[in-house]
């Protein structure tokens, strides 16, 4: 691959991702409306898709207000972290054969490291806002992310054992005969739950729980700084969906009447849809219930999954 090709891939991925993140504003609102017997945004452009443009423009032109009581530098810095860390995670995602920004041999570990960084955004943003609601949101966010990070990592180790590699491309290739969803259903479920918690989407939107904390850690944010959190959230959904596809649903693999990239995109959008459907249907557990659920149920389950996978892998190798 030439340098130019590389640059094109990087730019292409960046372009597509940011557009998807913005486009999800429309997708989410239309889908929610569909499921809630409403119309949703349907005025601007065909099917209302230009709402994306309107929303973005609005965010750009809003007064970029920094509360006088906030810790100014950290307040500005915090929203950037979430977008940066999620975008960096996309580096290792194999969208199709040879379409990957950096084919790292520690790909999965890099993803886990980057998603851990995202929590700084919430904690610092909430703390720098110097607002009680934001602080409560930040506290909740920190404990939730720390708890769910553990299961997220552990839930993926089964896949790693079966593949024998942390490289994302190798993991996808290993699913040529059988998707890992068949051999690792428990791993998938735990990863999915941890993924929702990581992106703090309903039902696990506890750091920003609207009816309790108004907007939680980003209560004081407005304008494009708020937009960053917003985009970070949609990028996060896309990231987790893409990871689920790559790790458990065969990535770009699929019947040959569609190109690999299309398969990957289709599967990813399916999971994005699931995320939105969850938001439309489930209530929000309480913060301590969520943490308890994580440590008392998910952790034993994921450890058992790991042991059984390990045992089976050893047995298969032995025979």
């Amino acid at each position: 691959m030439t340098v130019m090709q590389h640059i094109w891939i990087v730019l292409g991925v960046l372009f597509v991702l940011l557009n998807i993140a913005a486009g999800l504003i429309w997708v989410e609102r239309r889908l929610l409306a569909l499921w809630q017997d409403r119309l949703g945004p349907n005025r601007a452009g065909p099917l209302g898709i230009l709402i994306v443009l309107a929303d973005t423009l609005k965010l750009f032109f809003k007064e970029d207000w920094i509360p006088p009581f906030a810790e100014k530098r950290i307040f500005i810095f915090a929203p950037a972290i979430v977008v940066a860390s999620v975008l960096l995670s996309f580096v290792i995602i194999p969208f199709a054969p040879h379409i990957v920004v950096a084919d790292l041999n520690i790909g999965l570990l890099f993803f886990l490291a980057m998603s851990s960084l995202g929590v700084y955004s919430i904690v610092l943003g909430g703390w720098a806002s110097n607002n009680k609601y934001a602080l409560l949101g930040a506290l909740r966010g920190a404990s939730q992310m720390i708890a769910y990070e553990v299961f997220m990592g552990l839930s993926l180790m089964g896949v790693v054992m079966l593949t024998g590699s942390f490289n994302m491309g190798a993991i996808v290739e290993a699913q040529k005969d059988l998707w890992f969803i068949v051999t690792q259903p428990v791993g998938f479920l735990v990863f999915f739950i941890a993924g929702i918690a990581e992106t703090h989407r309903l039902p696990f939107d506890i750091p920003e729980a609207e009816s309790e904390l108004i907007a939680g850690y980003h209560a004081e944010y407005s304008g494009m700084k708020f937009g960053m959190f917003f985009i970070g959230e949609y990028l996060g959904i896309t990231l987790i969906s893409a990871m689920m596809v790559a790790l458990f649903f065969g990535g770009w693999l699929g019947p040959s009447f569609l190109p690999p990239l299309a398969w990957f995109a289709l599967k990813t959008f399916f999971f994005i849809g699931i995320f939105i459907l969850l938001r439309a249907s489930l209530p929000r557990p309480r913060y301590d219930q969520l943490i308890e659920y994580g440590w008392k149920i998910l952790l034993p389950v994921v450890l058992a999954n790991l042991m059984i996978t390990g045992a089976v892998a050893l047995w298969m190798r032995g025979s």
């Binding site: 809630q36 938001r279 209530p283």
Partner: peptide
């Protein structure tokens, strides 16, 4: 009430 505990959809059905 459902919305207070985070369930976003019921309120729309019920207002209908």
């Amino acid at each position: 009430f459902a919305q207070d505990v985070g369930q976003l959809s019921p309120v729309f059905y019920m207002f209908t």
